[in-house]
């Protein structure tokens, strides 16, 4: 469990080894404060949706997963529905969070509000669920630690990137490379940095 947690933060960082959530990463990493806000929101949604989808996958979608309903359900295979179910869970979950935050934590909503709807189409969230499906975790605890770890990894990446880009305003970059070009190169260099963690085992 701890191994999954650590490796999903560093070795299998969503951003640097799979490029998931790249769009919002590049669009929002212009200053540290908003980046932290989006990072926290993504981490939270990942921690919740990965276990929910894990339970759905194992008790509804997998071939034979419906056997708890009775003998005659054992042969049913709903796995082709998994994409639609996962995205529906993610979209409705972000909607619910938005409503809850709006009702009970209006101050948090003011700072996070604009990012919450964006999260439904953030590749990192969907990617988390799809990797969970592929990795076949033994129980739901591992799924939770995977979701949390990936979320923290994403948060670290976007905050680091935002800090670098804030400093970058003062540096002298070739003109055609400014903006998007240099952002790509920095992401690549940070990716190399995170790669040095690979091989660590706990």
């Amino acid at each position: 469990m701890i191994n999954t947690f650590v490796s999903s933060i560093f070795m299998e960082n969503m951003l640097f080894s799979y490029f998931l959530g790249m769009c919002s990463f590049l669009a929002v990493s212009k200053n540290v404060k908003t980046a932290t806000g989006l990072g926290l929101a993504v981490a939270f949604v990942l921690t919740c949706t990965v276990p929910i989808n894990y339970l759905l996958e194992n008790y509804v979608l997998k071939p034979g997963a419906l056997s708890w309903l009775g003998q005659s359900f054992e042969t049913i295979d709903l796995s082709f529905l998994s994409f639609i179910i996962f995205i529906a869970i993610i979209a409705s979950f972000t909607q619910i969070i938005e409503m809850v935050v709006d009702k009970y934590f209006p101050s948090l909503n003011a700072s996070l509000g604009i990012f919450l709807p964006l999260i439904a189409v953030n590749c990192a969230i969907m990617g988390g669920s799809l990797f969970m499906q592929q990795k076949e975790f033994p129980h739901v605890g591992v799924a939770i630690s995977y979701g949390l770890g990936s979320g923290i990894g994403w948060l670290l990446a976007i905050v680091g990137m935002a800090a670098i880009r804030e400093k970058l305003q003062y540096s002298d970059i070739p003109k055609p490379l400014k903006g998007l070009g240099i952002a790509f190169i920095i992401t690549a260099l940070m990716g190399f940095g995170f790669m040095s963690f690979s091989g660590i085992r706990i």
Partner: peptide, 18 residues
């Protein structure tokens, strides 16, 4: 390694923009 994809895209952007 995955990060090289980013660097190649950065080069494409560089060429296209200039």
């Amino acid at each position: 390694l995955p990060p090289m994809a980013m660097i190649i895209i950065a080069c494409i952007i560089w060429i296209q923009k200039s």
